[in-house]
Computed example of a mutant assay.
Amino acid sequence: MSKKDGGASKAANQAKADEAARQATVRQGTQAVNDTFSQFNDPYFEKQRTNYLNFALPQLDDQYGKAQKTLTYALARDGNLNSSAQAYQNAELQKTYDTQRLSIADQGQNFANQARSSVEDARGNLISTLNATGDATQAAQSAAARAGALSAPQGYSPIGDAFGAILNGVAVSAQNSRAQALLSGKPISNAGLFGSTANAVKTTA
């Protein structure tokens, strides 16, 4: 074997050894990243969902309770308690409440899905950088910093006014009914409150 061939063989062996060492470092760094990110498991993502539900549902329940009181006051003021008008408007409130609960549940699941996507994107970026640099120490430090940022509490915006449209409609209908009653000289309760519940009929228990 010539000196030239021997030198080439030595260089090839060194390159192979260097690559083996790099791969070992990458495996070490990948394990460090995965260990740090192991906290982001299914229970963690489920908690992201329930955190939003615990934030939003009490607001919806509070709005619903206030809407029921407002509706009852409006109906009582115009003599329409225990009437078909009350039954109709209560049904509308309940339908809106149920729809809003479903919307909040969907949003909670969206937060869980977004958290999962953010975690996997961060993990993938860290490992890609590690493969490019071969720096396991930096990968471990970056993983800790990124995990800390991902674990920060999520901020939420208050839910919107879920029942405003219904209550505004009730107020406008009641105002129109009172105006018609004044013109016709009929009692307000017989003036046809709430549009589709015209000629509201009182019911007795």
Results as ranks from 00 to 15, higher is better:
Q89Y: 07
G65R: 12
N190C: 06
A152P: 11
G192T: 03
A132Q: 12
Q138T: 11
Q114D: 10
Q141I: 00
L57F: 06
D121V: 12
M1G: 15
S83I: 00
N190T: 15
D106R: 05
A12E: 13
T72H: 13
G192R: 00
A56F: 06
D62Y: 00
G160R: 09
A15G: 05
Y88I: 00
G7F: 06
F55G: 01
T50S: 12
T203A: 11
T36H: 04
Q94Y: 05
A87G: 10
V172T: 07
A205V: 11
D35W: 03
K202D: 10
G79T: 07
Q31K: 07
D161E: 11
G195A: 10
F37T: 08
T197N: 15
T204W: 13
T203R: 11
L93K: 13
Q175S: 15
D78R: 01
R22P: 05
Q100F: 06
T36C: 08
S2A: 05
S196E: 12
Q59G: 14
K47C: 01
L193D: 09
T133E: 09
T203C: 02
V26E: 02
S196M: 11
A122P: 01
K16W: 03
R116A: 14
Q31P: 04
D121N: 06
Q94M: 08
Q94P: 01
A122I: 00
Q14F: 15
S128E: 12
G29K: 02
N51M: 00
F37G: 08
K16F: 13
Q94E: 15
S9I: 00
G185M: 11
Y156G: 04
K202P: 07
Q31W: 03
Q31D: 12
D98F: 03
T133I: 10
P158H: 04
A8R: 15
Q68A: 04
K10R: 10
Y64M: 02
R101V: 13
P158V: 04
D106M: 00
A21I: 09
L75G: 01
N113D: 14
N110E: 10
A143G: 11
T36V: 14
K95C: 01
L126N: 01
F37H: 05
S128Y: 03
V119L: 15
A171T: 07
V26R: 01
I159W: 11
A198Q: 08
P58Y: 08
L130K: 00
I188P: 08
G134Y: 06
N190V: 14
K3T: 13
S117V: 02
Q89E: 12
P43N: 01
G185Q: 04
A191S: 15
Q175P: 04
A149F: 05
T96M: 08
A200T: 03
A191N: 07
A179F: 10
Y73Q: 09
N125L: 10
S173K: 02
N199F: 12
F37C: 09
N176D: 15
A85E: 11
Q59W: 05
A179I: 08
Q138Y: 04
L150R: 04
A67L: 05
A181D: 06
L57N: 13
A171I: 02
A122V: 05
D135K: 00
T72R: 14
D121P: 01
A11F: 09
A147I: 13
G160V: 04
M1I: 09
S142M: 06
R146N: 11
I159R: 08
R116M: 11
R146T: 15
T96G: 11
S84L: 03
N90M: 10
Y52A: 03
A143K: 04
V201S: 13
R77G: 06
K16C: 09
R146D: 03
D62I: 00
